[in-house]
């Protein structure tokens, strides 16, 4: 079995199963009554934590490919991104259905007035076009460049998610800061990499038209 085959046939299904474990545990704890005194809050917190975690895992795929030299890891990226969207959606639905019970005026007020909810909601909205354009057909239709540019929005959504967490807690807590640091490292890696590539491109004989003056 080649490396690509191993990743597609073994690793990918395994990761799929593993990624479902948090949701499965949630369902189990719900039916066993193990979600504590305030189950809705517990579900909200758990789905939110996993949403952020999967966003970070998705963002680490490309750096891992480069660092480990295993380009084929890209075959996991879409699935992980969709799992991030899955947990974000569960988190959002928990709020709409369980927490607010479709109380629209209260929901609108929350989104309009409470910055941590505003930014959380915006991040959720940001991820919707990414999930919708995750199919091969959509990649083709948009064209690789445009698709890639659109999908950089995941950094915006992840930053919004971290801010959402940071603004939600009552006192300085390590967890939102840890997510923030991970995001900074991941984003920093990509920026550095892009700079290096740009430098390389400048040194190499010109293949494409030069960038317009003044752009960076």
């Amino acid at each position: 079995m080649t490396q690509v085959q191993f990743i597609r046939r073994v690793l990918k299904p395994a990761v799929f199963i593993i990624a479902l474990i948090p949701a499965a545990l949630l369902v189990r704890d719900f039916f066993q009554g193990d979600l504590g005194a305030n189950p809705i809050e517990e579900i909200t917190h758990r789905t939110g934590t996993w949403a952020l975690t999967f966003l970070m895992i998705t963002l680490s795929v490309t750096p891992m490919r480069r660092l480990l030299g295993i380009g084929a890891l890209v075959h996991l990226r879409r699935m992980l991104g969709l799992f991030a969207f899955f947990y974000v959606s569960l988190h959002f639905l928990t709020y709409i259905v369980l927490d607010q019970f479709f109380e629209l005026p209260a929901i609108v007020e929350d989104i309009a007035k409470r910055p941590y909810i505003t930014v959380g909601f915006a991040s959720f909205l940001t991820l919707i076009p990414l999930a919708l354009t995750s199919t091969n057909r959509m990649v083709k239709r948009l064209g690789g460049r445009r698709w890639q540019r659109l999908h950089r929005l995941i950094y915006v959504a992840a930053a919004g998610g971290v801010l959402h967490f940071l603004w939600q807690v009552k006192v300085e807590e390590p967890r939102p800061i840890i997510y923030g640091l991970i995001l900074v490292v991941l984003l920093g890696y990509r920026i550095r990499e892009q700079r290096l590539q740009a430098r390389k491109a400048r040194r190499a004989p010109r293949r494409a038209a030069p960038a317009p003056v003044g752009s960076s």
């Binding site: 369980l98 607010q100 209260a106």
Partner: peptide, 19 residues
């Protein structure tokens, strides 16, 4: 008077579903 980060209009009584 709302808390800046959440509404105080309603509350969840522990053990109840609806606010």
């Amino acid at each position: 008077v709302d808390h800046p980060r959440w509404s105080q209009k309603r509350e969840r009584r522990i053990g109840e579903f609806r606010k």
